[in-house]
Amino acid sequence: MPNKGKIVAGVLAPHPPHLVYAENPPQNEPRAECGWENLRWAYERLRKSLSHLDYDVLVVHSPHWRTQVGTHFLGVEKFSSLSVDPVFPNLFRYHYDLAVDVSLAQQIHDQAEKEGLTVKMMKNPHFRIDYGTIISCHMTNPTWDKPIVGISSNGAARYFNMEVLQAEMLRLGEATRKAIEDSGKKAVLLASNSLSHRHFTVEGEVPEDMSREHISNHNQYLWDMKIIDLMKKGKTEEILSIMSDFTETATAETDGGSLSWLLSALKIPKYPAEIHGYGSVIGTGNAVVEWRTPL
């Protein structure tokens, strides 16, 4: 029996492609002058914080791998290809080369299945990794020296409502935690979503022109601040209880269930989260937030 595994940290790790674009890593084709520094510096602080942690794997739940039939898991050891963002192809054309911890993915899959969730392993080697997964992982660990587990998001918030999705995600979070404990591995979890999510529908000549960047509307800003305040106070149970309202009224990207999954996997933390930073990207609200699991 191996040592008991553990989730050593959970992170709200949003994935606007603008952040990778503005970082100018060699993997991304377009070049930027600057941009969205408050969020990029937030990710810098996250990376610094995680650099003191010993962990084996990043487990990422992405709103941009959307499935309607349950939850799917990447099930191929290696993926190497080009990811072009269908919405912002001018900003994100990223050559990725990543490793998947298929055995942990299979364990989470099996645990979720045991608990009655609909699940599937994705075993097609030609599958293209979604840009949400890539961006959250790149911003968290740009060296890609850890394998990942990639988890799809389910469309139940649109098919039914947010309550239905959240109920499933709470179960998936528990299954994720149990499987990680059984695996003996140390994992960092990434919920790859923005908070409020109303975009501008136009873009300037220079996408990184920060004189144009602001939140879409004050309503969204108030909601984002409310959620962040609860995170700071360790009141995540309250976040879950207002998740439906938040998702609907702030058109939040929590409709993919990533944040609900994360909070559940972290046992609905009562300790304060570390807010590494908040900023808007093309009108949407984004926070980089870390929950460091107590020793």
Binding site: W65, R66, Q68, P86, V87, M122, N124, F127, F200
Partner: peptide, 25 residues
């Protein structure tokens, strides 16, 4: 879906091996 207005594909010869997000098997 697009967010920034409307997008129009103009690449002369798009070529790839496509896999569906849901029905990959």
């Amino acid at each position: 879906p697009s967010v920034i207005g409307h997008q129009i594909q103009s690449y002369p010869e798009p070529q790839w091996t496509h896999v569906d997000d849901e029905f990959h098997d």
